[in-house]
Design a protein around this nucleic acid. Sequence first.
DNA 1: AATGAATGAGCTTTCATTCAT
DNA 2: TATGAATGAAAGCTCATTCAT
Lengths: 211, 211, 211, 211
Amino acid sequence: MTPLPKDEAKHRRIIQAAIQVFAEEGVSNGKIANIAKAAGIGKGTIYEYFRSKTEIFLAVFEYYFNKLLKGYEQLIREDLDPTRKIEKILDYTFDSLDEQLSNGSSPDWLIFLEIFLQGYRNEILGDGELLFSDTLRKMYTLFEPLLEEGITAGVFKSLETEHAIFILFAALDGIGLHYFINRNHYQKELLKTTIKEIILHGLLKTDSRKV
Amino acid sequence: MTPLPKDEAKHRRIIQAAIQVFAEEGVSNGKIANIAKAAGIGKGTIYEYFRSKTEIFLAVFEYYFNKLLKGYEQLIREDLDPTRKIEKILDYTFDSLDEQLSNGSSPDWLIFLEIFLQGYRNEILGDGELLFSDTLRKMYTLFEPLLEEGITAGVFKSLETEHAIFILFAALDGIGLHYFINRNHYQKELLKTTIKEIILHGLLKTDSRKV
Amino acid sequence: MTPLPKDEAKHRRIIQAAIQVFAEEGVSNGKIANIAKAAGIGKGTIYEYFRSKTEIFLAVFEYYFNKLLKGYEQLIREDLDPTRKIEKILDYTFDSLDEQLSNGSSPDWLIFLEIFLQGYRNEILGDGELLFSDTLRKMYTLFEPLLEEGITAGVFKSLETEHAIFILFAALDGIGLHYFINRNHYQKELLKTTIKEIILHGLLKTDSRKV
Amino acid sequence: MTPLPKDEAKHRRIIQAAIQVFAEEGVSNGKIANIAKAAGIGKGTIYEYFRSKTEIFLAVFEYYFNKLLKGYEQLIREDLDPTRKIEKILDYTFDSLDEQLSNGSSPDWLIFLEIFLQGYRNEILGDGELLFSDTLRKMYTLFEPLLEEGITAGVFKSLETEHAIFILFAALDGIGLHYFINRNHYQKELLKTTIKEIILHGLLKTDSRKV
DNA sequence: AATGAATGAGCTTTCATTCAT
DNA sequence: TATGAATGAAAGCTCATTCAT
């Protein structure tokens, strides 16, 4: 009850086709027939590789998740001081969004979100495994060492890491999403600088608490 | 192409019913028949008030948007110093999320997001009016005076307001969404304090730039 | 979870259409679309009256069962001596088969059998309620009083009624089925006489056991 | 349009596999893929031995028919008086049914019937050769000598053999089928005795016609 | 104005059959 | 000769929408 995939390349092609179709038609609106057409295969062939539409959802979700994870993991492993790393993570997020958009303009982020929402609702409603919120938390934890490193080094404030990292990731996600939606109305570089400024140095001009 | 509604109360009841159904079944999965049932009216009657399911989407979206807008507008109009206002906005966001969840736990935020995604996709693809991204920007602008006030008063740094406010709102949205999804894994009060700390005073322990 | 049927007449019309289609195409081969067409309604309408194809099976089965039951019940209630009743039951079986065949020649008996087989298999395999074999036994019991009456009256041998009646009914069923299949190769009247002869007086010329 | 089979053993293995699959899934529901799996060969190989699923049906039918025929033929050829032969035929029918059921409980009789029904319907509807009802009559004739022998010997009444044998076989078939379905509710030995009693000596206590 | 029975386009999924290897 | 990946016709079922009452 797992070994369906035969031709690994075709398996990937179907996922790519699904992404394309979901991007154009929406996730719960995306038709299997169109995925097949986009993949250049017969409708029935889809079912040689995936047991159901839901299984395609999950595969697409996993694909994105791993892509995201890999990108961030690499950054976090780099030998840089924590402040610089945060800056790079921010830059990376914006840049990879832009890249996605130029590469055919398929709004990947939305697909991810849409699958997530659908899966998450099922999760709440009792069906489905606790996949989605767990997955998300796996993402947060990825960033924890970064924060801990900075705190240990005495560069960052000694915030409660678990909650602080949640905030940073969630904020980044929100900013990414909104940037994506409004990409034509804001200047990327200015956004990047401003975010760094606020996150690193805060909104207040003078820190009234300093001794 | 506008004057359908006759009985204003019934019109509202349908929207409420739609929210309830969308919350339980998802937006593109929510059935008109169930909306009618939840509203206590006949299936056909829905079509006396809305021309199509899409029109219901939009009405629900508008309803949420106005609710959000009203909540934030009120806060922004209050006679408080800008720093305190930002704190109240944060508190309000978390508290109203919690309230939504306790009131029957129907995940309103998700509905908003789901409708948004769907509408936004159509926007990109050329159908549909430029409603969604414009709407969003209307939201941002709401916060602008708050920032300007703080800058003028010399309390906030003199950031480029348009971009700064975009960031603050987007971050808040992301944090709200993730909090919603993970509400059982984090402590609300600790989150609130940490967010304020980071946004207001920044992540760095000592501001190397201070004179 | 029962009150689907609205228009009783249409409900019956669908069952009739199903019988017709099952007769022509077979039970598991009979298409919903064709049932709809035969009933002169839309495909979707079927599902306003039946939740699934299986539910149509069962309704058709029930229809036949009740028809059979009613026919035999009436005969058994008649005020005749037991021997004569057995003869009438036999006559009735043959005559109603012939009537079915002349009325458009749709082989109802086969449909009954086919549904039975399908349902019975599911029964064996664990799905499905113990409907079919129970139903069948309800049929047998119907004939029990007839036998008991004859025994009490000293006309029939004192056989173990439960088993004897099983045999008589099963034999009748078999004979009915085979007659149906071979109706053009045998003479009805001769069959009827011969059956009565064998069942009532036995195959042996001289009953060697007689005292 | 006949010479497909190459490897006789594999041909038989496919038939056996088909029986197994039909027994579990039903005839029109039985999947070629599963037959192949059960036969331990590739799906495509089936088509080297059979042109279509229908051809498999027919082969299975033929297989059963020959098995039945052989069993009864053997009994009829035995050197016993006609009365005893009838008794043995009855015993044999019950015993081989029981044996089938204990041998993995696959309901072979049902498969035979199901294929028969399907084939017979096509026969009626004009497709298909006149295979099924002819086949059945071949079965009846098998028993004719038995009856003739008894009549000639003066043991049996001088009934019209063709019709009488039809009745005896049809009754036996019905009894077999019903016994199969209700095998847990009746006592085999009691059934056997009662059947013999009724068939041989008739239902009536005193034969009023005897001189 | 309100209804819900009727509808059919359209969806996912299945599976007998083909055919390149 | 044997295979199983590929296929698409076809089937059951859903549901937004219509419209007679």
